[in-house]
Simulated scan of single mutants.
Amino acid sequence: MTQLFTKDGSVPAPLPSRIRLSDGRTRTNPASFTPEEIADAGFSQANPKPEAASDQDVTWGGADWVLRDKTPEELAQKAAEEAAARMLTGKAECRRRIFAVVDEMAQINLAAAAGAGLLSEAQRAAYISGLAWIQQMRGTWPGLIDAGADLSDDANWPAVPDGAAALVAAF
Rank of each mutant, 00 (worst) to 15 (best):
L144M: 03
L67M: 15
V101I: 09
Q107G: 06
S32C: 09
K78L: 05
G139W: 03
F5P: 00
A53D: 12
M137F: 11
Q135S: 15
A125S: 08
L151D: 01
S152I: 06
A132R: 11
A106I: 06
S22H: 15
A39L: 13
A126S: 11
A85R: 15
S129T: 10
A169M: 09
G117I: 04
F171N: 04
P14D: 12
V66D: 02
R124C: 05
R124S: 11
G163T: 06
I98F: 10
T26Q: 08
S54T: 13
A166Y: 01
E121L: 09
A149Q: 00
G115W: 01
M1L: 12
A63H: 07
A92R: 14
L4N: 02
T140L: 04
D8W: 01
T6M: 04
Q123W: 05
R25A: 06
A46K: 04
N47D: 15
V11F: 09
G62V: 08
A53K: 14
P161Y: 05
F33C: 05
R95G: 10
S17K: 12
S129V: 09
L110M: 05
S129W: 02
A39E: 15
A84E: 15
M87L: 14
L167W: 00
M87Y: 14
K78Q: 08
V101L: 03
M87A: 14
